[in-house]
């Protein structure tokens, strides 16, 4: 029991981090970035390359992952999203294509066998009957630190307020001297960096493989759809619902069920409450 609670809490923290970059883009740019899972994959592979191939320290690996993710987010906005401005279907299809292209690129560079990342922090911790790897503990703590940092940034800085403003009223933002295009660019950069860092932790929890972008994408989509747009707290709660659902189903029923309940939850909410459990009315 305590195993389930602890594992559930830790996994949920990681899931919240996975979802937040995706939620950000959806709330501010109104784009379902289906290439988001690929940011996580890139983050994982960049980390692998710099730490396990080149032998750099872990923190440098995480930093490089963040930089790569940020650059890819910015390029994607500039080259695809902005060019196709307003055409949501075209943007979403091209983001999905981009994910597949990135997957092919990864196979080309790293081949298609899966790889195990060394734990970011090795060791285990036993409390009560439960064992917790330092790795997932680090991932969860780092996730919480990043989420709190992001929350404070969005609430209290000029750029963060401008991001909220653009998400609520583009014209209102523009006449206040905010350049919505620049804010979108910044948001895509932040989202890419967040995704890539989440990818490092996710890959260290599971493994690296060229198809690893699908599972986190489903988690992120689920958090947005179930949580609804514009609610950071709602996203956190949903990340916990999904995290616990997954731990409970995989430990008590069968490991093969990983992800299945998440997808059922997406469909259930789409049918019964399209706005999401915590979403605001569309503006």
């Amino acid at each position: 029991m305590s195993q389930i609670i602890i594992q559930g809490l830790l996994l949920s923290g990681l899931y919240a981090l996975i979802a937040v970059g995706f939620t950000l883009i959806f709330s501010i740019g109104r784009v379902l970035n289906l290439a988001y899972g690929a940011y996580l994959m890139i983050g994982g592979y960049v980390y692998y390359h710099f730490t396990q191939v080149l032998g750099l320290p872990q923190i440098a690996g995480i930093l490089m992952a963040a930089i790569f993710g940020c650059v890819i987010g910015i390029l994607k906005y500039r080259l695809i999203v902005k060019t196709l401005k307003g055409d949501h279907v075209a943007v979403e299809i091209s983001t999905l294509i981009l994910a597949v292209v990135i997957q092919a690129g990864i196979v080309l560079v790293f081949n298609d066998s899966s790889k195990i990342l060394h734990p970011i922090v090795p060791g285990v911790w036993r409390i009560g009957g439960a064992t917790v790897t330092f790795n997932i503990l680090t991932a969860a703590l780092a996730s919480w630190a990043i989420l709190i940092g992001l929350y404070l940034f969005v609430r209290n800085t000029h750029i963060g307020r401008a991001m909220q403003a653009v998400s609520m009223d583009v014209k209102g933002a523009a006449i206040s001297g905010v350049d919505p295009d620049r804010i979108n660019l910044i948001t895509w950069g932040i989202s890419g960096a967040l995704g890539a860092v989440a990818g490092v932790f996710f890959a260290s929890y599971t493994q690296l493989s060229p198809s690893m972008w699908v599972a986190p994408l489903i988690i992120a989509v689920a958090v947005v759809i179930v949580g609804g747009i514009g609610s950071i707290i709602g996203s956190l709660i949903v990340a916990h619902i999904i995290g616990f659902m997954e731990i409970i189903s995989t430990t008590l029923i069968a490991a093969e069920l990983r992800g299945v309940f998440t997808m059922l939850l997406i469909i259930g909410v789409l049918v019964m409450r399209p706005r999401g459990l915590f979403g605001r009315e569309e503006l």
Binding site: Q164, K171, L283
Partner: peptide
């Protein structure tokens, strides 16, 4: 129409 930011 003001174009305020309603949830701020």
């Amino acid at each position: 129409r003001f174009n305020l930011f309603p949830y701020m």
